[in-house]
Every structure is written in structure tokens, then in C-alpha cells.
Design a protein around this nucleic acid. Sequence first.
DNA 1: GTGAAAGCGCTAACAC
DNA 2: GTGTTAGCGCTTTCAC
Lengths: 324, 324
Amino acid sequence: MSDVARAAGVSSATVSYVLSGKRPVAPQTREAVEAAIAELGFAVNTAARSLRTGRSSMVALIVPDIANPFFAQLAATLQEELRGLGIHILVCNTRARRDEERALLAEALQQRFAGVVITPFRLLPRDLDALHQAGIPVVVSADVPFGSADLVVPEAKAATRQALEKVKAARRRRIAMIAGPRDATGGDPRLELLRTLAPQFGTSLPRELVVRGEHSREAGAAGFAELMSRRYRPDAVFCANDVIAIGAMDKASELGIDIPGEVALVGHDDAFFASLVRPQLTTIRYPADEVGRAAARLLKERFEGRSVRRTVQVKAEFIARASV
Amino acid sequence: MSDVARAAGVSSATVSYVLSGKRPVAPQTREAVEAAIAELGFAVNTAARSLRTGRSSMVALIVPDIANPFFAQLAATLQEELRGLGIHILVCNTRARRDEERALLAEALQQRFAGVVITPFRLLPRDLDALHQAGIPVVVSADVPFGSADLVVPEAKAATRQALEKVKAARRRRIAMIAGPRDATGGDPRLELLRTLAPQFGTSLPRELVVRGEHSREAGAAGFAELMSRRYRPDAVFCANDVIAIGAMDKASELGIDIPGEVALVGHDDAFFASLVRPQLTTIRYPADEVGRAAARLLKERFEGRSVRRTVQVKAEFIARASV
DNA sequence: GTGAAAGCGCTAACAC
DNA sequence: GTGTTAGCGCTTTCAC
């Protein structure tokens, strides 16, 4: 930067102000500086800037599993949306473990990250307090409010209603769910929503027809097997996400159970493979790219000074395919 | 750090040396320092460290599309393998564009990243020269050597032979390929390999049965449609990757063409959805997690001082499923 | 509208 | 085996 200053015949302070726009600079001075910058191919040293300002230009994306297509797409969108601000996305897998979630958050705090986007899995709201106090913007992508962080939530009532309607039209009465783990943060809102709405469609989601496991294909298979072994055997199974639903399909084909003939299946997310499996998976779409854009917007607003908490709803959409 | 030094009754230099191990420290001094660090919850400021050393602790993963399951898995593995060194993975999408590849590389240079892992798509070997001169380790995951960078390459001869064998056993003679774009860096080695080996199996890959496109589902569909319109119509189609193969399957079902009855189909990568589609996709597996581990190892060796170029081969594996 | 200069927290050369 | 200290490149206060 001092090189640029010398070349432009100004002080390095002026170069800095040209770059940041934090104080007015005479047009011709500005031009001279910009010419020198272009000439020398100068780029600011972000380490020095971070040291001085106490703020890095990194945003951490903290998720249970970046290899999950939903989160991979979220990473892609976030990166796309924030690159214009010179912000980099750092991916962090927590493998759904609270200790890793906390460790990552602690690091974000210590390194004074520009922001954090997190899908908490076993985190407690108070785990975010320190970040909040340090003024580091946090966007939570989850179904329930989470401390004082900005929030991106699904609006899934209408879509879930449509799913139930479709299930009802297929003359199914015994609804079950393969849900996430019991100790997940905020419980399983997709389960709660289903339980709340089911009575409107002449059915219910009895406790004994809810099985739980991790968000994995294996857990989906295990959950489906368990449900099929019940005396009161379900004829429609909702899954907390599409990965779980795929596991259920694995097991169904292993057990020779016809989908949707014997059991109807509904997933969540509409991962791109939902239309690839046979039968094609009926699902409640939750668009990762819109979530990413919303998170990026919330972050940008914080960078620009917003200090009040904000929530953005992203609409879920019922996608009728062949598994119901 | 000066707080820690004060608490431990030593100088901040000693604290630094305890942390880095770059010079011997008396056991009791070390203990006192470690106690103070634990006590105060101290963590080094990486911005200050980067400024001082001229090296950041970021590794950039530069790929065409992080939402592609292969690259998403690569990111996950890389992050997992390098977290122990306090290194963070920064994901960068190039959307297969050379200008973005170059811009990202320039940034890695300017910010003095700890390393770069890149799957070049339209980059030229000389684009890496500046990084090399600056001593920034670069690992290239590609099928062909690339300047002076370390390399992770597939060893796919045996697997490709097995694929051809299988195709031959299915009495197919008219082999085609839906390949990547012509202007991709290093051409399309999967195509070259197939062309080289085909004669050993009593067939060949004629120029007019090679169609090209981006690595996308849409391009796969378009490529398949084009092949099906040829007078000399193929009865076996290889695809440069599984995403392309899925596109081909889309089009086949649209055209009412039976796979594998009329046309056999072979993919590359064994993305997790390959076993999800019907018919299940026969493919040449290239394991993203092994690639990630190899890249991490190469990087670590460079951090520890290796200065000679090294290549790691990762074995591809033929996965026979139902599409041939 | 512009400049001088302090100082962010660390590392490593030098001194003992 | 340990301490002192310069300085990395930037931002920002204070002065003009």
C-alpha cells in the first residue's frame, strides 16, 4: 500500500480511504490512486486488515455434513452471494456433534469471523451468546428461533397440508414418521407440524409410530424396518429428510414391500436425487438456494449496521411424485 | 499472548516458542505456560500470525461446482483431514470458467494461502507458475500432469478394461462417448483411455460417436439425444461422469429407449446416486474420499518441507450394476 | 482534503 | 534456556 501511495504521490492513509470510501477524496487524487493500484496490481493484505480492525473476512458455514446435497448447495449459493463483498466461505462439518459445534463456534469467536451461518443440531441457544456479545452476526437455518440470532425458517404448513391431503386421497390412515434424534436441538419441527395437522385429515400420528435416528440412509433403513415390524403397521411413512427416505426405500425393496402399493412414502427437502429413485420420491421441497440467498442477505444487512433480530421465511413446496 | 506471558512469569517469546516448538523450552517453563494458556482460554490470533509470517492458515479448494457430490465429498474429507493442523478449507466455485479459476488463484497468491487444492477445468499449467514461485503448495486433482504441482491422478486402466469387457460380453460393438468440453484443460483423459483400450476388445471409439458438453445433466441429455440421431447409432454409451449419465438416462426414458436393452450405459465416479437410479448405473468408481486424503497428505508433506514434486495414484474400480 | 504516526498481536533475529 | 525488540501492512485518530 505504501508502494501505491508513493506511485500516486499521496500518503498511504489516502490510499486506504480511497479503498474504503470512509472519507471524501478529491476526484483527481482518487484517480491517481486507482491508476497506481491498477498499475501495480495491488490487493490489500487481509491479514493486516484483520489484525488492525479485529474482524476477519471469513464466514463460517457450520453444518452437520457438507456432503449432504442440501448443505453442499447451501455452501455454493452462499459463496456465490458473498463473493462480491470479498468474503470467503469456510466449510465446517460438525458430524452432528455438539462438542464440534461448540469448538467451531469458539473458533469463529476467537478469530473474529465476519459472520456465521449455522444449522445447529445439538447446540443450545446459549452457545451463541458469546458470539452475539462480540457482535458477530449469526444466521441460524433451523425450524425454531434460536437465541438472538437471525433466522431462516421454513414455512411448511401449506405444503405439509397438501402432503396429508394426498396421503388421505390415497386412502391411507395409519401415518408414521422416521424422525431425527430425540436430543436434536429444538426437537423435530417437521414431526410437530405433522402431528398438529394430521387431525385435520382424519388421522393422527401416534407416539408408537414415530421412530428416531440420525439423518442418514442407514438410519432410514433401520427406522423403516422397525416400523414394518409393528403390530399396528403404518401405510404411510413420512421421513424427516430425503436421505432418510432413501434408506427407507432401500429397506422396502429388501423386504419386498411395494411403494406406494403397500406403504406410501414422503420425504423432505427435495434433494436432487428424489426424482432419480424409482418410484420417484414424493417430497416437501425446501430450497437450499433460497435459504442460502436469505442467509446471505441477512448477513449483508448486519454488515451494513442492522442490529435488530430478523426472521426470513422460506416457503416449502409439496412435490407430488410417485411414492404416494 | 502477553497476558499469558505475564501470568506464567515469562516473556511472550517463550509463549510463542512453547506454542510452536521451534526452540527447546524447559519442562517447568512449558508447564507454567500451558497452565496459563488453559487458565486464560488463550488462542492465538491467526491474523497477527499471518501478518507476521506471511502465511495464512487457509487452504482453498477450487472446483467447478461444489454442489457436485464428488466435490462436496472432497471438501468434507479435506476439512476432516486438515482440521488437526488448524487449517481451514475455503470453498471456491469456478463454474468451470477460466477467468474465475484465475481470479481465485490470484487471490490465493495475494493472501498467501497455506495451500491450494484444485481441479482445473480450463486453466493452463502456466497459471500455476506464480503460486509455485511464491512457494504455495498446490495439489492438482486431474488426470494429467499440471506444471510443477503435486498431483492426484486416477489409475483407471484396469477398471476401464473391465468395463469394456463387460460391454463386449453384452455383445455391444458400437461404442460412443458423451465427453466433456473440447476446450477443457488436458482434454478428456477418460475419453483418451477408452479410445486407446477399445481396440483390445474388438471395437473402437470413432470420432463421429464422440459428443461433447459441459459436466451437467442437461448436457448429458442433449448428448444422448444427439447420439441417438446418428445413422450409425451406438449400442453402448460411456459418459465422462455420472451426472452426465443421469442426463442420458433422462433422455432415454423420454425417447422410450430401453437401457440396457437397446443401449448400454457406463458412467464415471460412482456418485452416491448411481445406485439410486433405475436401472442402477454401471460406473467406473473414483473415490472422492481417497482423493481428499491423498491431497491432504501431499499438502502436509509440503508443509513439512518436501520440495520435490510428487504424484499419487488413486485406483478406480469398475462397478457392475444394471445399465450394461 | 490530506498527512503523520501509533499500534493491532504475533514471530524470529539477536543478545545474553 | 530465556528475554528484548523490530516490524509485518493496514486503519484511524489527531493535526493541519
